[in-house]
Amino acid sequence: MNIFRLLGDMCHLVAIIILFLKIWRSKSCAGISGKSQVLFALVFTTRYLDLFTSFISVYNTVMKVVFLVLAYATVYLIYLRFRSTYNSESDSFRVEFLLVPVAGLSFLENYAFAPLEILWTFSIYLESVAILPQLFMITKTGEAESITTHYLFFLGLYRALYLANWVWRYHTEGFFDQIAVVSGVVQTIFYCDFFYLYFTKVLRGSGKMTLP
């Protein structure tokens, strides 16, 4: 464990909690892409199957359970509890255009042709594109509530910190996970446009983000 990965995990946790609390307290999921949240729940499900097969640390196990519970709880809020506030017409990204290539690639490019390994690889590839329905929804509606932009900021920051973690681990322990690193770079690149808008618009106190 190093400070970059710990900070990254904390940013990830903060992002997920920000979103959950926003929906829970406002009793509304307006402007939130349910599709992205389903994809994140799928990412955690396919990545954390080793919860039952290998114990790494208390921290690792606790965080995996917390991420899984919050991810499914958020999906529940969107599609069941507050479904009347869900903007399904704005959440129109064709997720099959993500799932099919990601599933295909995870069979072609992986470390081992074993079920757990392919599912882990699928989760890594899927996570790099899972936010696209949400970003697409924001470009479609042309705006995002400031709390949603804070959620996206921490979500984008978490994988950027993981990139620093991989640089650190490469130099200190020679660790290099090519699939995770390449996907992490792609994932973070998708946030660059958002980061620019976030720093120039939201942090200038303009409240909600309105796209040009």
Binding site: R5, I56, N60, M63, K64, Y111, A112, A114, L116, D177
Partner: peptide
């Protein structure tokens, strides 16, 4: 042990 079980990151 393949890389799968060595997954120590979240």
């Amino acid at each position: 042990d393949g890389p799968a079980s060595g997954k120590d990151e979240l």
